[in-house]
Amino acid sequence: MGDRSRVGEARRAAAELAGRHGFDAIQSGRLAVAVNELGNNLVGHARGGRLLVGACQLGDAIAIELISIDDGPGMADLQACLRDGYSTGGSAGQGLGAVSRLADDFDVYTRPGQGTLILARFYREHDANGAPRRAGAGFDVGAVCVAAPGETVSGDGWNVAMHDNRADVVVADGLGHGPDAAEAAAVALAVFAQARGSHPGRYLELAHGALRTTRGAAVTAARADAGAQRIRYAGAGNVMARVMSGIDDRTLLVQNGTAGLQMRAVQEQEVEWPPHALLIVHSDGIQSRWRLDDPAVLQRDPSLVAAFVFWKFCRGRDDATVVVVRRAQR
């Protein structure tokens, strides 16, 4: 985001999303203020800044997320930046404090000299007391899905279905990128919706059959069971999954092949899911052997965790998707 005209572009994208998903005029106005503040902050202070704008539906909960990403200089005094009247240069003078008040969910990760991530989430539905209607079933979910440079659609797709104290997760990476890859990912997600409740191995078999009419996709599916503290999973290709906490880091190995093209008999596997561990699933737009130099980031909102992995480990030449699932901390 190198000039202020891009702020207007981001504001129009947010307004289009808000209209498409039924946000009212007041909600759309709050969203616009947040886009202005975050966007102008990036223009005025950031290096290599990006503002991600996206909508997400999990169950009955619909939200629009803004994620600001920049490479520096970071905020040495976060609390000062959040105080009323602390202006982000060139903005309306409301500052990050206004964004934190307007958003239903707000989170910041910053390191002086290295950069800052900011999340502002706006839900469409609220109860009589003004509390946002979040997805239930005891899980918090966050994701980032960004198209390859030069593309207008992502060839990756993801979804999470929550039921009976379980979260079923899928990430599909259509071969290549662009519209044909996006079509393959869409087919994989359609099968996921139709096969609701199926074990990961069975889902992968169904996806393999449906994807034969497409260019094919790398697909990984997992069932995170909070009650049993286990994760069952199956996958074909280079969509990676990891179980991570401050003391644990386990990669979930999947088989070679491409769903829809060539795939051996499905091998479903199972691992432990420690109480404080996150399940992180990502496409190969993210480096395969990344390591966190600050495990404290795992305590942030799952969308910020996903944004951190994208920020630090994106290859920069392909579609990139990161999905994070955590047991709810509310």
Rank of each mutant, 00 (worst) to 15 (best):
E268D: 10
V33T: 09
E183A: 12
D127W: 07
L17Q: 10
R133H: 11
V153K: 06
A98M: 15
A185D: 02
Y86H: 15
V309T: 02
L204S: 07
N36M: 14
P112F: 08
G257R: 03
G115E: 13
G44P: 11
A13N: 05
N256G: 15
T110Y: 05
E183N: 06
Y109M: 02
E268R: 10
G44V: 12
P275K: 10
D168W: 07
A167L: 02
L82S: 03
A320C: 04
G19M: 08
H177T: 05
D24C: 00
W158M: 13
T251R: 15
L189P: 01
I247F: 02
Y203Q: 04
Q255W: 00
A61K: 10
A226W: 08
G8N: 14
L189M: 09
A55N: 14
V169K: 12
V187S: 04
R50G: 02
W158S: 10
F308Y: 15
L298T: 02
D284I: 10
A131P: 02
L261E: 10
L211F: 09
G136L: 09
L102P: 06
E125S: 12
I118E: 04
V254A: 07
D104Y: 06
A18F: 04
R50P: 00
V305L: 07
V160Y: 04
K312N: 05
E16I: 05
Q94L: 15
S154F: 03
G216E: 09
E183L: 11
F23A: 04
T321D: 03
V141H: 01
A307S: 05
V171F: 06
V191F: 03
P302K: 11
A182C: 10
V281D: 12
D3P: 00
P275N: 08
G174N: 04
A221W: 07
A306V: 03
A128Y: 06
S5H: 01
A307K: 01
A277I: 08
G113P: 02
R300L: 07
A172Y: 00
V7I: 09
N129C: 08
A320Y: 02
D180K: 12
L252M: 11
E65I: 03
P73R: 03
E270N: 09
V170C: 02
